[in-house]
Design a protein around this nucleic acid. Structure first.
Length: 265
DNA sequence: CCAACGTCCTGCGTGC
DNA sequence: TGCACGCAGGACGTTG
C-alpha cells in the first residue's frame, strides 16, 4: 500500500525518465481505471513535471492538461524501455518517445484522472507532513477538536495528507502514544512527539526508498526495503523492540492497528 | 460541521 | 484435492 514515502519515491524516479518526453500512444486495458476525462487526450502532449500531492501523483502536461493518478492498495508505475516482456496486471500503457510507462494494479482500486481545468480528484487534502508548515502547533490545531481515535485521525487525509495504515502504527509506536486515545486528549508534549515521529519516520523511509525501488521495479511497498524498517506493523506476538512485551493487534475502523500496550499510553 | 459505515477489487491463506 | 470463505485497506458517498 503505497504511502507518502513510496509515492514520493515513485515521483522522483519517474521525473528523470519522463519529464520533457512526449506521449506517442495510449492503451487502456481496463477502462474503469480512468475515473475522469479521456486518457487519449494526452497523446501528443509533452510531460512538463511530475509531483505528489498527498498520495496522489500529478503529471503536468505542456498544453494545460493534467493527469492525476492514485495507486490505492496495489497500484504502481513500471518503466520499460521496450515491451518485449510485459508484466501481469498492467491496466494502462502510456507510450513515450523513449519508452513505455505501465500502470500496474492487481486489485484495480487505483485510478487515473485526466483534467484540463483546476479540477482535482481529491475533496479536501490536509497539510503535507514534509511541508515546512507542519509544526507541532499546526498539528495541535488540527487535532484538538477531534474526538476520533488518534490512529484514525492520522489516516484522515483531510487532516494530514500522506499517512496510510502502515505508517500510522509505526508513528504512534515511535511517539509512545496509544492508538485508541482520542485525538483531542493529546497535550502539546505528546503532539510534539507525534509530529516529530511523523517527520522522522516518513523522511527516513523516503531516504531508503531509493534503494527499494532501484531498477524501476516499483512494488506495492510490502516487497521493498521498507519492510525491514518496520517496528510494529504486522508484528503481532513479536517482542516490542523497546520493552520486549508482545506486540498486540486490534481493529480500528475495519483496519489493523499494531502497538505495544506497555510503551504506548 | 463531525463520525461511522458500506463500497469497490483480486490474490492468497485457512479450514473442512 | 477442491472449494468456500474471509481478509488486506484508501478514499469517497451516504447516512445519522
Amino acid at each position: 500500500m503505497p504511502e507518502l514515502p513510496e509515492v514520493e519515491s515513485i515521483c522522483r524516479m519517474l521525473r528523470d525518465r519522463i519529464c520533457g518526453r512526449m506521449v506517442s500512444d495510449i492503451e487502456v486495458m481496463l477502462p474503469r481505471i480512468i475515473r475522469r476525462g479521456r486518457l487519449e487526450d494526452i497523446i501528443g502532449s509533452k510531460i512538463n513535471s511530475v509531483f505528489r500531492r498527498g498520495k496522489f501523483i500529478c503529471f503536468e502536461m505542456d498544453n494545460n492538461l493534467r493527469m492525476f493518478a492514485h495507486l490505492r492498495m496495489t497500484g504502481t508505475f513500471l518503466w520499460r524501455n521496450d515491451l518485449t516482456s510485459t508484466p501481469s496486471h498492467v491496466r494502462v500503457e502510456i507510450k513515450l518517445d523513449n519508452g513505455c510507462l505501465l500502470y500496474r494494479d492487481v486489485r484495480t482500486l487505483g485510478g487515473i484522472w485526466v483534467v484540463k481545468d483546476g479540477y482535482t480528484p481529491w475533496k479536501r487534502l490536509g497539510i503535507d507532513p514534509l511541508d515546512g508548515g507542519f509544526t507541532p502547533e499546526e498539528l495541535q490545531l488540527r487535532l484538538h477538536d477531534r474526538r476520533i481515535a488518534i490512529k484514525q485521525a492520522l489516516l484522515d487525509q483531510s487532516l494530514i495528507a500522506g499517512i496510510g495504515n502502515i505508517y500510522a502504527s509505526e508513528v504512534l509506536w515511535n511517539a509512545g502514544i496509544h492508538p485508541t486515545r482520542s485525538a483531542a486528549t493529546l497535550n502539546i508534549e505528546e503532539t510534539t512527539r507525534l509530529r516529530n515521529s511523523i517527520v522522522e519516520i516518513l523522511s527516513s523511509s523516503l531516504a531508503s526508498g531509493g534503494t527499494t525501488f532501484r531498477d524501476f521495479q516499483l512494488s506495492d511497498g510490502r516487497d521493498g526495503a521498507f519492510q525491514d524498517l518496520l517496528k510494529v506493523y504486522a508484528k503481532e506476538g513479536l517482542p516490542c523492540l523497546k520493552c520486549r512485551s508482545a506486540i498486540r493487534r486490534i481493529v480500528q475502523a475495519q483496519r489493523s492497528t499494531y502497538f505495544c500496550s506497555v510503551c504506548q499510553q
